[in-house]
Design a protein around this nucleic acid. Structure first.
Length: 740
DNA sequence: AGCACGCCGACT
DNA sequence: GTCGGCGTGCTC
């Protein structure tokens, strides 16, 4: 039985996570009192053939859609909105600023469990412990089942119940073994309390040096008001200590702290330090946790039962019952910018969030982004500078190693090899950095020149000898490694270029007596394996550490005294104007890994461009000087931050459609453009074909942010009218950081 | 983005 | 004769 529809029927505007720039109208559910329909609650609605979880935005009297076509909300999921009005405002702002559909923006504020419509209730996490029987059984009694034997021993050694995360860290396929032990009633299931056990006694705070104290005082003086601090300090300058002492004071006011970090790899380390220090509930949120773990963490911050959250980019929108402070560490790191879908910058949105909440935010880094330095110049951010701590590590010595016309074996020059040997003889560790994984980026036939290209991308397949496969790093396509040239059937296939896997094999030959550890996405894919490697390295159970990006991200390797970047040149010649900044940050960050104790470190950069101004300025005058020069270049070229950009990206299966569409867009733009905004393109994307899709882009640039944004508003309305838009998929990237 | 509908090639 | 390829269109 349905209610008679009176003239005063209300219409609910729902934000649904689909890439469409509009809200969807629904009738209120017939069994629910309208007082329960508060903006911000989640609702389940029929959408097309399926059901989706959306957020109620507003209730109005009328709909543009004829009433008889309206469907009713199926279910109200929340009694109260889970997000505060301020956070809803922030999401509306982000949707407008990034010109991204509100439904998708709203969805990113919720953990996956809530996006799927789960109730906003904490889930007690499953854990396992020994049964009474299990405590008595000797593992040796399970002779015919070595895996069960090992797991039983693990339980007998552990003083606490083990959860899924702990078991995964122990072994990848633990579920089968666990089931066998539970069937034998040696292990039983328990539930872990949501709130962690009473924390360990807090460690005493260290005595801050004068500069640290100044920073702490400045930040604390801004409590309860909006202020942005750029905390610049090289590795070893004691940034974390500043964070912790400020956090301590915020905790004393019973306020919460949100700490954002670039990658999950850093979270466990910092979490451990925080747990030793604070007698306050700490939760973390990153992609290696299960949906329920992340839901629990989110709810505990929302309800105020946890005081500190450590999380990655997606933790930015975690609701805070009593917000007190936001800390964003490694602010220069480009992983704070989401690179698909809702392409937001967690750093920039975090600043806006702090402003809305009237709380301070601290951006920490050893290598500030040019945008942040510019904001300091504009007096929008306050700079706090921590010099290197006296008595701590000595500045590493840089050496530009000119490898032109030098003998070089798989990317390692003779001079570098002898430096490595010298370091190893002193029982010290070596760190080698190459930002390319796999064995070699190209496989080529020596007799006919055939190259193994990806069928779906404008890219070559990368050789992975370890798995005996060819892989495309852009679409994930793979095939087994051919033994013969597929084109001419000759056996002369060669590996061209370098990857970490190849260097690893060369190092194993050159330094057969030493242990080499390779850290890249291929070797650290498994949960907990990076932590295992890092422990190994710090135990001294590794002599040469070789790896990609992830090496440059803040890990402490106290015994490394030689760091080398095997190929800096590939970073020098990119079309993207950000690349110089990224390379400089990378060099400084890698250098930060070397020589941290009393031993002076050495940093070697292999290059065929020893006179390149970027390298010369950076090495002779330091990062600050480099940044000044780079900013001046941006100013002269009117590039960001001296102008503002938005990139319209388009892709389609059809090769012509993207360009045809963008030409039409350009025509529209010339008609509505007030004149000062530059329209550059359309041009093919740097990788014109990727995963079978043809890609084009159009860049808009303006000195006035307002002008750019009002143009984008009008453009989006017009785009939907362009007939060609139906044949392509398009998206906007506001403040793009890389043009891929 | 999903998802269904719809019209043309290689299979039982 | 059908299964299924992806071009097209729609979602309140």
């Amino acid at each position: 039985m349905t209610k008679p529809q009176s003239a005063s029927v209300k219409v609910c505007k729902i934000a649904i996570p689909v890439p469409l720039h509009r809200l969807f109208d629904y009738l209120p559910p017939d069994d629910v009192d309208s007082s329960q329909l508060k903006p911000g609650i989640r609702v389940s609605v029929p959408f097309g053939k399926s059901c989706k979880t959306g957020v109620l935005i507003e209730i109005c009297r009328h709909s543009e859609i004829p009433n008889r076509r309206l469907k009713a909300i199926e279910k109200v999921l929340d009694a109260q909105p889970l997000l505060s009005q301020q956070d809803m405002r922030l999401l509306h702002w982000a949707s407008r600023y990034y010109h991204h559909p509100l439904g998708e923006v709203m969805a990113t504020a919720f953990p996956v469990a809530l996006r799927k419509g789960k109730a906003a209730q904490g889930q007690h996490e499953k854990a396992y412990c020994l049964s009474e029987k299990g405590e008595l059984v000797q593992p040796e009694q399970l002779q015919r089942a070595p895996k069960q034997q090992a797991m039983l021993a693990l339980f007998q050694q552990s003083s606490t119940p083990l959860n899924a995360a702990a078991l995964s860290a122990w072994q990848r396929n633990w579920r089968g073994t666990l089931k066998a032990l539970r069937d034998k009633e040696l292990v039983t299931e328990t539930r872990l309390a949501v709130i962690p056990a009473p924390p360990t006694p807090a460690q005493p705070t260290l005595k801050a040096n004068p500069q640290q104290q100044q920073a702490i005082d400045d930040i604390c003086a801004a409590r309860g008001e909006f202020a942005v601090f750029l905390l610049e300090g090289v590795t070893g300058s004691g940034k974390t200590e500043v964070y912790m002492q400020v956090i301590d004071q915020v905790l004393q006011q019973d306020l919460q702290i949100l700490v954002l970090l670039p990658e999950i790899t850093l979270t466990p380390q910092l979490e451990q330090r925080f747990r030793q220090r604070f007698a306050a509930p700490i939760v973390s949120s990153h992609s290696k946790l299960t949906d329920n773990e992340r839901l629990n963490a989110w709810l505990q911050m929302q309800q105020g039962t946890a005081s500190i959250m450590l999380g990655t980019r997606s933790a930015l929108f975690t609701p805070l019952k009593n917000p007190g402070l936001i800390i964003l560490d490694e602010e220069h790191d480009s992983s704070f910018k989401q690179q698909e879908g809702f392409r937001f910058s967690a750093r920039d949105v975090a600043v806006v969030r702090a402003r809305n909440l009237h709380i301070p935010i601290v951006l920490g880094t050893a290598t500030p982004s040019l945008e942040s330095l510019y904001n300091v110049k504009q007096k929008r951010y306050r700079l706090l500078h921590l010099p290197k701590r006296a008595g701590n590590a000595i500045e590493p010595k840089f050496q530009l190693l000119d490898i032109r016309n030098k003998k070089i074996q798989d990317g390692l020059s003779d001079l570098l090899i002898s430096e490595i040997r010298k370091t190893l003889e002193k029982q010290e560790q070596v760190l080698l950095f190459l930002n390319r994984r796999g064995y070699a980026p190209v496989q080529m036939c020596h007799s006919c020149g055939y190259v193994s290209r990806c069928r779906r991308c404008d890219a070559n397949m990368v050789i992975h000898y370890d798995e005996n496969r060819l892989r495309c790093h852009h679409c994930g396509a793979e095939q087994s490694l051919p033994r013969q040239c597929p084109a001419c059937q000759s056996g002369e296939l060669r590996s061209i270029g370098l990857g970490t896997e190849r260097i690893e094999k060369t190092l194993a030959e050159l330094f057969a007596a030493n242990k080499v550890v390779r850290l890249d996405r291929d070797t650290t894919q498994r949960k907990g394996s990076l932590e295992n490697y890092l422990q190994r390295i710090n135990r001294g159970d590794a002599d040469i550490i070789l790896g990609t990006q992830m090496l440059a991200k803040g890990h402490h390797f106290p015994n490394v005294t030689l760091a080398a970047l095997l190929d800096v040149d590939s970073g020098l010649f990119s079309t993207d104007f950000h690349s110089a900044e990224k390379l400089a940050q990378m060099i400084v960050q890698v250098a930060g890994r070397a020589g941290r104790a009393e031993k002076q470190g050495k940093v070697i950069l292999q290059t065929r461009q020893p006179d390149h101004p970027l390298l010369v300025t950076l090495l002779s005058k330091g990062y600050q000087a480099f940044a000044r020069t780079a900013l001046e270049e941006r100013r002269l070229a009117l590039l960001p931050p001296f102008s503002h950009q938005a990139l319209l990206r388009v892709h389609a299966m059809n090769a012509e459609a993207p360009q045809v569409f963008l030409n039409a867009v350009k025509n529209v733009l010339t008609a509505i453009n007030p004149g000062k905004t530059l329209v550059l393109g359309p041009v093919p994307a740097p990788m014109a074909k990727r995963a079978g899709q043809f890609r084009f882009q159009l860049l808009l640039q303006s000195e006035q942010r307002k002008e750019l944004h009002s143009l984008l508003d009008r453009l989006i309305a017009e785009i939907e009218q362009i007939p060609e838009s139906k044949k392509v998929r398009w998206s906007l990237d506001v403040d793009p950081v890389d043009l891929y």
